[in-house]
Structures are given as structure tokens and as C-alpha cells.
Design a protein around this nucleic acid. Structure first.
Length: 584
RNA sequence: GGUGGCGUAGUUCAGUUGGUUAGAAUAUCGGCCUGUCACGCCGAGGGUCGCGAGUUCGAGUCUCGUCGUCACCGCCA
């Protein structure tokens, strides 16, 4: 037996027990006549001690060990004469009688401590060492617990967990596919799923009624802190349900997770149409932890010969509470911030609401005190507040103002990591016009059903059609999204037509789905949660890398195993593949 | 594809206007130390300043290129 206890469980009640422990050496503190060793495993740290009773053989072994050695020790639990109240095992220590080196260790390239000296790059290269650190382990443990709670909840509701294939078919819509050459079918490729979308719909046709799967999905697009090329979804689909049923089921799952994992009771779970989210927050994933809503003040500000506003389609304003004392330097920094290419605004007009009831703005030449008071009334600004105004074309300015709102929220400390504000965003547009290719794209995916009352618009004004699609947003993070699906093959054919597929193309790519619908398809709807994002939200972390055991870096590389990599010529030959020179 | 930050000891970083032998902390190694738990004290070793070119009497420092990395925009049904 390698151990009788873990390094996290011995207490004062265990005194005088003979025990065996195994783990990693966290640190050796040699005081001369006595030596302390911190022994670590994933459960905790236990102090070992060797003093003048120690045999020569044992002390020479102790001298030979260093950080991160894997050792097994036998000894007696005894009470410490000076206790450490910072750790649960701090009242006891192990008086060593025997020590075996199970695995010697070289000095690690960075210290295995919560406050490690290692940078991100190094930690990723030696991720197996990084994962020894308790604050990294706790994220992985949290992830496991959340998956467990999710499975329990959905199993209880009679959902059936079903695996779907990973080697599937490439489709041109949506994100780029990762492709895998087929040896047995020369010149042909599988694609890795961007989501199990069509399979879960086919499971509905098959009558499974309620399906879920915690599943890897793959998208060959550029990465971000919250985007990995392979990521995990809680993927779900239900039959004989309407949008409201899906929302309430997964509102239930979300509440349950918050309660079980964080012991938080989520109060409100509001539902907001997409159009309102854009109008009030300049985003389809509003962070509702704070207000600072966008106001359209176009009608209030026009007609004072200020050409910038008079010529603008949209003039919008937000009110930053308590920022009326911003200095010139702070305001200039904000102006620079909105002018960065990422935001791309031409400028920013400000109005300071002074404590004495007067106003000071960057457009005093054009607007008097009465005008500025009107603005203040319109946006709900009081003495001590700061009004920030941007103007231009409506859609981009709403987005820019929404970004500015988030930045101000950050500066004012309104994005509290311990507050959780969920929100359903509903009634997304069904289609999105793409200027470049002069065609409509499905905003969600081509199987999303339009709202019944908007179906006539499919002919006259497709851009106006709203979808039965919904996103779950928490604290400004898109956690999940789904839709009511089309289950009528005629309507599905019409959708493909709108999206520019010829009937032949539609048949070639999605014929199996349309065929399936001919044989009795139930009404169905579904949703998928971004599991990595959900876990990082619960962990209070911005990057999903920290909740993935072995993540990829910014350029999609695994720096630990060094992938992707070239393959042998023989492998290429077998696949009848030849590498082209890079295009210049 | 684009914008920006970073790259100096094992590691995290500092390095002034371009000027003497490139520093600190930590880690490592050696010595001392009986209650440490970020142990302490004394000492030692440790550098292709990412790589390449250029400017200059002289480059860690300036310029260009390149590679790596991070953040963001595009992209992500």
C-alpha cells in the first residue's frame, strides 16, 4: 500500500497513529539539527519532521531530496509545538521513521506555488507542472464538478446522453472546418463538427425526445482569450417544445448550477428582445450588472449649427455617474480610447455636470447652459455626473458607445465578479446581409425557424424577419445560444433558397436532414452552452485557457506537445496528399 | 489579414540621453543554524540582452526585417 492517508486529511485526533503518506516535496527547510519537509498532493500539505532521533540513513536520504521529488514516508502523527493556523493540517506533523524516493526530480523550471514565478509561456510548455499548482487544480476540479452537476440535473429530467460522430462532413456555411483526410477514401475528407447540430436534430426525428451531450466542438478560426479551436459545449435538444419550454428548462439548469456550485440564488432571469439590447446597451450580449444605458439624443441636439451632430444619423449618450470631476487628462485618455482602430470613433463629446448646477462641455461654442440641461435631463444626469456623447451612423455608433459603456463600467468598478446577472436575449434577426458576397447568411444557422408572424416578410423584406432564436447572456458573456428549429421540409427548402443554395446544393449538403423530415419530424428546439466559458465565469477568470487542462495558445499551437506538426512523407503518400508551397 | 504590447541570469523583472566589468529579487549549489512553515544568516556559480541586418568610434538601448508570445479588430452559422 503506497499510502494510508492523503496529505490533506490528518488532524489532531490522529495523534500517535502510524501512517504512510506519499506525495511531492513542496519544500525542505533544513534548520541544522532538525529538518522540516512539506509534502504535497492534491488534497493538501502535511509537514514532515526529522530531528535528533533520526537515523543516519534517514538523514542522508533527506539530504538528497529536493523540490518535486515524489517520496513515500512512514511515521507517527504528533502534535506540533508551534502550530500553523493557515493550513488544515497545521496542528500536526509526521515524525519520520522511513523515507523512500519513488521518483527523483530535476529542479522545475518554475516554482510550483500558488504565487509561481513562472510566466504564461513557460507554464504552458510545462503544463503538467503548472497543473500541480493548487490554484490551477481547483479550476479543473470545479470544471469536473460542474459537468457532474449538469449531468445529474439533465438525467433527472429524463434527458438521454448520446454521443455523435466526430468524423463528419464539411459544409461551407459558418466557421471554417478542421478537415481530416480519409485513407480508405482517397481525395476525400472528413470534417470535425463545429457542433453536433444536425445529428441532434436527427435524434429528435428518431424520437429520443430529450438529448444532451457534453461534447467537444471544433472551429478553425482565430483565437481569443475566450475562444479555443477545440472547446466544449453542453449540447441539448428537445422535442414537442416551444421556445418558452427551452428557456425555462435551461433557466432551471443555470439556477441549479449556481445553487449547487456557488450557493447563489439567482433572482431575476429577464428576457430582452435583441432590438432592445442593441438600443439600450449597444450589444447583443449586454452586461446588466450596471445601468449606464445608451440614450438616443439625436432629436435633442440637432439644429444648433454643430455640423458633426446635425449631419449624423445617430447621436447617442451615456451618463457616467460621479465622473463629473474627471480631469482634462482623463477625458483626453477616453477620447484616445474611442479613437483606437478597434473602436474606430472619430471623437467624443463630453458634458461635465458641475456640483453648482452649471455645465461644462467640449461643445460650449454651439450649446448654451439650457441646451446642456436638456441633454442632462434626457440621459438622467445629475450634478457630479459626466455625459459622454458619440455620433455617426447608427449601428456602428451604438456598438462603439456600448464598448465605451463597458470601459466606463470597468473604470468605475461596476463589473463585480461576485455578482451574476443572467439575461435571455431573444428575437434575433434570422438573416444577416453580407455586403461582400451580396447575399444573406443565417445569423444563427440555416435550421433556425423564423417567427411565424414574420414568415410573410421572407418574400418582401428578409432582413426584417426575426428568428425563434435565443442566447443566454451572463455578465456580458455569451454563455449559450439556441433556437426553435425548422421541422418542415418545404420551409427548410425555402430557407436554403434564401441563403443562395441551389436545390441541388441543398440536397447534396443537407439532403439527409430534409429527407428525414419527410418521415415524420416532431417540432423541436435546442440550445448549447459554452461549457468552458461557463466554468471560467464561475471561477471568476477571464480566459477559458485556465479552465482547460491542456489548452492551445494564441496561434492554435500546443506548445507542450508541439502540435500541429509536419507528418512523415510516408503518411502523406498513403493519403495521396502533396504539400503545396505557401502562397505569397 | 490588421493594430498594439512584450522578448535581458533557471525564473520574474530593472537597465537613465547610445558610453567603464549588464544589475535586483527569487531559484540553484556550498557553509552555519533545534520549531520552521515565503525560515534566517554567510558565500558561490549562473548572460548568444530572441534571431538577422543596418546606423554609429561605440547598440541591451536607435532603425528595418524576422521569429515567438499576449491582447484586441476582422473572422467566429
Amino acid at each position: 500500500m503506497y499510502r494510508t492517508h492523503t496529505c490533506g486529511e490528518l488532524r489532531i485526533e490522529d495523534i500517535n497513529k502510524e501512517i504512510t503518506l506519499a506525495g511531492w516535496v513542496q519544500r525542505v527547510r533544513d534548520l541544522g539539527a532538525m529538518t522540516f519537509i512539506d509534502l504535497r498532493d492534491r488534497y493538501g500539505i502535511t509537514q514532515l519532521v526529522a530531528d535528533d532521533n533520526t537515523t543516519k540513513e534517514l538523514s542522508s536520504k533527506i539530504e538528497s531530496i529536493g523540490r518535486e521529488f515524489v517520496i513515500q514516508v512512514k511515521g507517527i502523527v504528533r502534535e506540533r509545538s508551534s502550530k500553523n493556523t493557515k493550513i488544515p493540517t497545521g496542528e500536526v506533523e509526521i515524525e519520520l521513521t522511513e523515507l523512500n524516493i519513488l521518483g527523483p526530480a530535476e529542479t522545475p523550471p518554475f516554482t510550483i506555488q500558488d504565487d509561481t514565478d513562472g510566466g504564461d509561456e513557460l507554464r504552458m510548455k510545462y503544463r503538467y507542472l503548472d497543473l500541480r499548482r493548487s490554484n490551477v487544480q481547483k479550476n479543473i476540479v470545479l470544471r469536473a464538478k460542474m459537468a457532474h452537476v449538469t449531468r445529474n440535473y439533465l438525467n433527472k429530467l429524463d434527458f438521454i446522453e448520446t454521443e455523435t460522430p466526430v468524423l463528419i462532413k464539411s459544409t461551407p456555411e459558418g466557421a471554417r472546418d478542421f478537415v481530416v483526410p480519409s485513407r480508405m477514401n482517397p481525395h476525400e475528407f472528413y470534417a470535425l463538427p463545429q457542433s453536433p447540430q444536425v445529428f441532434k436534430q436527427l435524434l429528435m426525428v428518431a424520437g429520443f425526445d430529450k438529448y444532451y451531450q457534453i461534447v467537444k466542438c471544433f472551429r478553425d478560426e482565430d483565437l481569443r482569450a475566450d475562444r479555443q479551436p477545440e472547446f466544449t459545449q453542453i449540447d441539448c435538444e428537445m422535442s414537442f417544445v416551444e421556445q418558452a419550454d427551452v428557456l425555462s428548462t435551461f433557466e432551471g439548469l443555470t439556477r441549479h448550477l449556481f445553487k449547487e456550485i456557488k450557493n447563489i440564488d439567482i433572482q431575476d432571469f429577464p428576457i430582452m428582445p435583441y432590438a432592445e439590447a442593441i438600443e439600450k446597451y449597444g450589444s447583443d450580449k449586454p452586461d446588466t450588472r450596471f445601468e449606464m444605458l445608451l440614450n438616443d439624443i439625436s432629436s435633442t441636439v440637432k439644429g444648433n449649427n454643430f455640423v458633426v451632430f446635425d449631419s449624423a444619423e445617430y447621436v447617442g449618450a451615456i451618463c457616467a455617474k460621479g465622473c463629473g470631476d474627471y480631469t482634462r487628462k482623463q477625458l483626453d485618455a477616453l477620447i484616445d480610447w474611442v479613437k483606437r482602430p478597434q473602436i474606430g470613433a472619430k471623437g467624443l463629446v463630453y458634458v461635465k455636470c458641475n456640483e453648482d448646477g452649471t455645465y461644462k462641455s467640449s461643445v460650449d461654442k454651439f450649446y448654451g447652459q439650457d441646451d446642456l440641461k436638456n441633454w442632462a435631463d434626457k440621459v438622467g444626469a445629475e450634478a457630479g455626473d459626466l455625459i459622454l456623447v458619440m455620433s455617426g451612423d447608427k449601428a456602428p455608433m451604438q456598438v462603439a458607445l456600448g464598448e465605451l459603456r463597458l470601459e466606463m463600467g470597468k473604470q468605475l468598478g461596476l463589473k463585480n465578479k461576485n455578482t451574476f446577472k443572467p439575461l435571455w436575449v431573444v428575437d434575433f434577426p434570422l438573416l444577416e446581409w453580407d455586403e461582400e458576397s451580396k447575399r444573406f447568411y443565417a445569423m444563427h444557422h440555416p435550421f433556425t425557424s423564423p417567427k411565424p408572424e414574420d414568415i410573410p416578410l421572407l418574400e418582401s423584406d428578409p432582413g426584417k424577419v426575426r428568428a425563434n432564436a435565443y442566447d443566454l447572456v451572463i455578465n456580458g458573456v455569451e454563455i449559450g445560444g439556441g433556437s426553435v428549429r425548422i421541422f418542415d421540409s418545404a420551409l427548410q427548402a425555402k430557407m436554403f433558397d434564401l441563403l443562395g443554395f441551389t436545390p441541388e446544393e441543398a440536397k447534396e449538403q443537407f439532403g439527409f436532414l430534409m429527407n428525414a423530415f419527410k418521415y415524420g419530424a416532431p417540432p423541436h428546439a435546442g440550445i448549447a452552452f459554452g461549457f468552458d466559458r461557463l466554468v471560467s465565469l464561475f471561477a471568476g477568470i477571464d480566459s477559458i485557457r485556465d479552465v482547460i487542462a491542456f489548452p492551445k495558445n494564441n496561434s492554435g499551437r500546443d506548445v507542450m506537445i508541439d502540435s500541429p506538426s509536419l507528418i512523415a512523407e510516408a503518411q502523406l503518400d498513403e493519403l495521396l496528399l502533396k504539400l503545396k508551397e505557401e502562397q505569397s
